[in-house]
Design a protein around this nucleic acid. Structure first.
Lengths: 214, 214
DNA sequence: GTTTATACTGTAAATATATACAGTATTGGG
DNA sequence: CCCAATACTGTATATATTTACAGTATAAAC
């Protein structure tokens, strides 16, 4: 029961620290924090750390380099996949009408270090077909997906259209969305948001190819 | 399996480091090591660390405070407390003249469920260049490599030629080996085994793409 | 409408830390 | 016996890191 909740930025900082410990093996310095977040002053990081300490989610050991530790309080605010301990579900074929992460869609769970990916993945989705071939995403690849309803132009998205789940490159102009394949053999899908419902299930943040077919 | 076993003292040092990480939350400094063991010189600790690194049980990140991490090799000599799966080393640029898995080439280690791949990987190799683009292997991808000197025609191999490490498709006819790119912009490499030495470092068994560039 | 907290830039300095160099002593192996 | 590896002392220094001080700007809180 924390008195004050973390701000969005503070949460980002906390998650970075947690990831750094999990993947690199020790906590980051102020300067490393600054570099990652683009701060031009190490004091920006320092202030954030003070705030996080004030709110009880981290401890700072004075005078010790990298003297940051997470407290018990920090756990709840961290996303569930923050450590390598929580497995990534592999979603195979998505049954019509069911949420992507519904039990029936989950084939298996794999333990994958989330820090492997530049963006935190929430699940793996088996890609079907070769519509994204020229982006290096092949049939059978596992797409690491970050769950979010927001997408920017040019990003690879997992979208749901008429209960079909598809992986395409996202492009939006006003209320017109194009789902672009990366393969000349396929046609772009055009959606008018006024007449058709389009749900962005998440962003593609990486690929795992379980085998190289020879 | 280690060539040279740790000395008793080295084992003590290793266990202290491991305990420190587990209980304090980050690795110790040379001075903290010295204080604990009663060394009057930080160089005593430094030497021990070098020895441990030499024997492959820890990694030292140059210039970073507390930049110590345990490697997969350290596990057998540690008490069974924190048993995690053995991590996959990520090999970045391979320095000329050094074995692929030499300490200096290992950028990081990731815990990745080996069952994710159809064939058991031994390490990840960062792919440079786009010579395998049409096989869906892009610049920056991490190739999961199974260490073996045997290759069959058509397999994706990690080969070493003139101290250069390269990823290509393997084709052999008698004493003539072709290393085939999968990109028309690149030329096949032909090697006559009677005149040139070619070492097969391993087989590509999968891909991890840490980010989708948009 | 003046605080208060957040979110930073910019500079500077104390000090923590890594690490080189020069030694000493001991041990076990060839 | 001599060499190489181990296990340290002692000193020094470059640099990594923490951390203080002085600001600016913005949004929410009172």
């Amino acid at each position: 029961m924390r008195e004050k909740p973390l701000t969005k930025r503070q949460e980002e900082i906390l998650i970075f620290i947690s990831d750094h410990i999990a993947s690199v093996g020790f906590p980051p310095t102020r300067s490393e924090l600054s570099k990652h977040f683009g701060f031009r002053s190490p004091n920006a990081a320092e202030s954030h750390l003070r705030a996080l300490q004030q709110k009880g989610v981290i401890r700072i050991e004075a005078g010790r380099s990298r003297g940051l530790t997470l407290t018990a309080l920090s756990r709840p605010s961290l996303p569930p996949s923050n450590t390598a301990r929580t497995p990534l579900p592999l979603v195979g074929r998505v049954a019509a009408g069911s949420p992507i992460l519904a039990q029936e869609n989950i084939e298996h769970e794999y333990r994958v270090d989330p820090s492997l990916f530049s963006f935190r993945p929430h699940y793996l989705l088996r890609v079907e077909g070769n519509s994204m071939r020229d982006a290096g995403i092949l049939d059978g690849d596992l797409l690491a997906v970050h769950r979010t309803p927001e997408a920017q132009n040019g990003q690879v998205v997992v979208a749901r259209l008429d209960d079909e789940v598809t992986v395409k490159r996202f492009k939006r102009k006003g209320h017109l969305v194009s789902l672009l394949p990366e393969n000349p053999d396929f046609q772009p899908i055009k959606v008018d948001l006024r007449h058709q419902e389009l749900v962005i299930e998440g962003l593609g943040v990486g690929i795992v190819r379980p085998q190289l077919d020879n």
